[in-house]
Write a protein that binds this DNA or RNA. Structure first.
Lengths: 116, 116
DNA sequence: TAAATATGCAACTTATTGGTTGCATGTTAA
DNA sequence: TTAACATGCAACCAATAAGTTGCATATTTA
C-alpha cells in the first residue's frame, strides 16, 4: 500500500467512524426507525412516546444531521426531519469493505485447506 | 405492531447500538482493518505504528471484544486477537433492515407519482 | 390580539470515554 | 537463573456526551 493510499484510508476511516458513532445510540436508532417509513416528522412528534425531553431528542437529531443521516427543514413553526438514505448506504458500504476483505481471506484459506 | 414485537425491536436496537458504538472510533476501525487480513495478531503487534500506548490499544480491543467483533486467545505470553466476521454481518443486516424499509417506501412513492 | 404551539438557546450536572503512568505478573530465551 | 518480553491491573486526568431546567422567540389559531 502506497503512502498516499494509506492517507486516504485513514481519512475515510475517520468519516466512517463518525457515521458509526452517530448510529451507536439506541435513541438515535429509534429515531431513524421512526423516520424510515419516509414521512418527515417534527421534533415534537419524534419526542412522543419517548421518556426523554424534547431537548434531548433535539440534540440527538443534531448529531444525526451532522453525520448526514437526516436533514431538517423549517416549515412554518415546525422543523421537519427526514432520513437521508444515501448516507445510510455509505455506512453499509464501509462494512462491506471490511467484511469483503475478510471473506476474500476466508476463500483463500478454504482453497488452501482443500489443497487447491 | 404488537407490544411484544415492539419490545423485541427495542432490545434489538440496544444490541445494534452497542455494535455501532464499537465501530464508531477511528482507532478501533483501524484495528479491524489490520485484522481483516485474517492473521491473528498480538496486542503489541497491533500497537505498532500507532501513536497510542499499548494500554490504549488494549482498551479498544476490550471494547471490540465486548461487542463481539473480535476474540482474543492467550497463546503463551501473547494474547492473539482475530476478527469475528459473523458479528460484522449482524451490523450489516441491521443497516439493511432500516434501508430496506426506506427503499420500500421509496418504491411505493415512485409508483404513486407514476400514477400506477 | 391573546393563547397555544413548536422550536431555539444557554447553563449546568453527571456519567462515560479515551488516554496516560506506574507497577505487578507470567512466559520465553540466553 | 536472570533478562527481556507480553500482558494485566489500577489509579488518575481531561474531554465529551447525554440529559436536565429555564427562558426567549417565532408561528398559528381562536
Amino acid at each position: 500500500m502506497s503512502a498516499r493510499t494509506h492517507e486516504r484510508l485513514i481519512r475515510r476511516l475517520g468519516q466512517h467512524a463518525a457515521l458509526f458513532a452517530a448510529l451507536g445510540d439506541q435513541t438515535r436508532l429509534m429515531i431513524l426507525v421512526k423516520l424510515a417509513d419516509g414521512v418527515p416528522q417534527s421534533i415534537t412528534r419524534l419526542s412522543e412516546g419517548s421518556d426523554l425531553t424534547r431537548q434531548a431528542i433535539t440534540k440527538h437529531l443534531t448529531v444525526l444531521e451532522d453525520a448526514g443521516l437526516v436533514t431538517g427543514s423549517r416549515q412554518g413553526r415546525e422543523n421537519l426531519f427526514q432520513i437521508e438514505s444515501d448516507t445510510l448506504a455509505t455506512a453499509h458500504d464501509a462494512l462491506d469493505a471490511i467484511s469483503k476483505q475478510w471473506d476474500a481471506t476466508l476463500d483463500r484459506l478454504k482453497k488452501h485447506v482443500e489443497g487447491a
